[in-house]
Nucleic acid binder design. Structure first.
Lengths: 354, 354
DNA sequence: ATGAAAGCGCTAACAT
DNA sequence: ATGTTAGCGCTTTCAT
């Protein structure tokens, strides 16, 4: 039953089918593509021959000759284990599927060079469009590819040095509202944990924090900002130090869910009750063992809107480059209990967590 | 600066570059591919012409003529928002990248027909191999594609009606150990929440549960099994009914993390302390507001091992179809507090949760 | 070291 | 309704 499945034997071609069915190449083409009128009897013979041989049309050859689209889009994205990116990828996959396109998911790399290389590879493969969740801060190198006819839409971050569409979050307003809430609760020393400012999103969020102070005529103490908190582990460790210090902050603002989760762990471990606001919602945030306020948004919409925008370009619509800004909103999450302190607060952190 | 980026103008070809550089087509080919010796002066001229035109080799055309691989693998997978699948996808993406391959991620669909269709589309695109996280229970239709020369590796579920490699979890042993733990703690009425038995993985897990009873000479009450609990919401609702019943179970076993999370929510909302064992670990399980024991495993390894296996096939290695079974282990997660009951236990569940 | 011709698998444009 | 010819963009083979 199992034939020699490991032989690299050439797949049958249209010519093979034509020979077997005793018809011309073109007739096979017509039958396979289901267009035009073909004599039913003949069509049957062709279909039979094709089935017997296990004929599968070579899509790339058809595209090459006909000049049709490859019906493929590319997505450059970082780490699918991070739910932020995974949700975007899921949205893009859904839209691609709805349009009958395949999706090539490629890693966006660490810097502008990696990114450019990935884009160029996808262009060699003649993708019809590109969705990019950028890592690097310079996209000027991509201008050429776009000019060459590959539309691009940027997700989560605006393109820099490049004229292209984008869908981003309102980082500034979100951070401003979150910080404002803490200030309005009477906190004036708010510890800020952010990832590197090389991510413009972080800069926007930090500016939102500053603006909340300004809004209220308060001055912001920049020394309360802790930079380069890239992982939950780092956040947890930095929090240990911060909490031990004199004049520790009375509330915390975390620039993303990674730092938020890490900070939460340490606060929980020490039974601390300082309020925490965290940019990005996350799975199960509602079941956290203590309150946490998140700055949430529609993550799936970010990916879906970006993909829709891309397909408009692919369909040939011509319009000025546009940037869609998605709103955020404050959501109270986590649980509250009567217990002032956990009995056995420290637990093995979940493995493989972002 | 921005040239007419929306014109569907043909991308330049090798012939265009050759003309501009005043050399033959073949010379351009040699320069572009960086093989063979070409006069440096000439190579420079060619490179210059290529850069000026923004020439990008047409990868598909090269593959067509040379018969080389497409350097592409396909991944059929369901929902990337589910961290189980997202982790597998991340692992596969990493291995593909390490091998210089691109990855087409396609939806595996709802049934055998969708699945077959997706596979056939990928075969038309001549992917060099296929990773499949199956949804359907019949893969006989894929045999032909495999015989035609496309190697396949199944992830999480064994292929049915098809001779192919697979990487799966030891569902039986995991469920047996988890249930055994509860039985050894003295529980005899354990409520079982599982998804549909049409998923063989669920059947294996349920059999593991039964075996744990058998191991101890206990008889298992099949009426304690709740079927078709597919989402956290469903699990939460079913738990309401179960807890309200007379002779409610004194402990719970959930067949996957979706039902586990849902059950956890309801238990927590009611301040119930019945122990809960859940197949699948999940993000932040360590911070759940009450204890939970998970049956964990190396999810990333599942994807990575599968991809490695596939690449061995792609490289032409010939060996008997093999199934790798990954071990599981019990892990205590969640937090414990002195508080017998939460004050405000019911909270808005996290949005967009799997 | 460079180039001309043929052809990968398919479809477009023309016959018939 | 069916077939023939040419050629998509590239690499191979074989000259030179």
């Amino acid at each position: 039953m199992v034939t020699d499945s490991h032989s690299p034997s050439r797949r049958p071609t249209m010519t093979d089918v034509a020979q077997r069915a005793g018809v011309s190449l073109k007739t096979v083409s017509r039958v396979v593509n289901g267009v035009q009128t073909v004599d039913p009897e003949m069509a049957g013979r062709v279909q039979e021959a094709a089935d017997e041989l296990g004929y599968r049309p070579n899509f790339a050859a058809a595209v090459l000759r006909s000049g049709a689209r490859t019906a493929t889009i590319g997505l450059l994205i970082k780490d699918l284990r991070n739910e932020f990116y995974a949700t975007i990828a899921a949205a893009v996959a859904d839209v691609a599927r709805a349009n009958g396109f395949q999706l090539i998911t490629s890693y966006s790399g660490e810097n502008a060079d990696d990114e450019l290389e990935a884009v160029q590879d996808l262009c060699r493969r003649r993708v019809d469009g590109l969705l990019i969740v950028p890592t690097s801060g310079d996209h000027a190198g991509l201008q050429k590819e776009r000019d060459l006819g590959t539309p691009m839409v940027f997700l989560d971050r605006r393109p820099e040095g490049l004229d292209a569409d984008a869908v981003v979050l309102d980082n500034f307003a979100g951070a401003r509202a979150g910080t404002g809430m803490l200030l309005d609760e009477g906190h004036t020393r708010i510890g800020i944990l952010i990832d590197t400012l090389r991510m413009p999103t972080m800069g926007e969020r930090l500016n939102g924090v500053r603006q909340a102070y300004t809004d209220r005529g308060l001055s912001f103490d920049e020394s309360l900002v802790v930079h380069n908190v890239a992982t939950p582990d780092k956040a947890a460790k930095r929090m240990e130090t911060i909490l031990a210090a004199e004049q520790a902050p009375t509330a915390f603002f975390c620039g993303n869910n990674r730092s938020g989760v890490g900070a939460l762990r340490t606060l929980w471990a020490h039974g601390r009750t300082e309020p925490l606001v965290c940019f990005d919602d996350f799975h199960l945030s509602d079941l956290m063992p203590r309150p946490v306020t998140v700055i949430g948004y529609d993550n799936y919409a970010l990916g879906a809107l970006g993909a829709e925008l891309l397909f408009r370009r692919i369909r040939g619509e011509d319009f000025e480059s546009q940037t869609v800004v998605l709103p955020t909103r404050l959501i109270r999450r986590g649980t509250t209990t009567d217990a002032p302190h956990p009995t056995s607060p420290v637990n093995q952190p979940t493995e493989g967590i972002q």
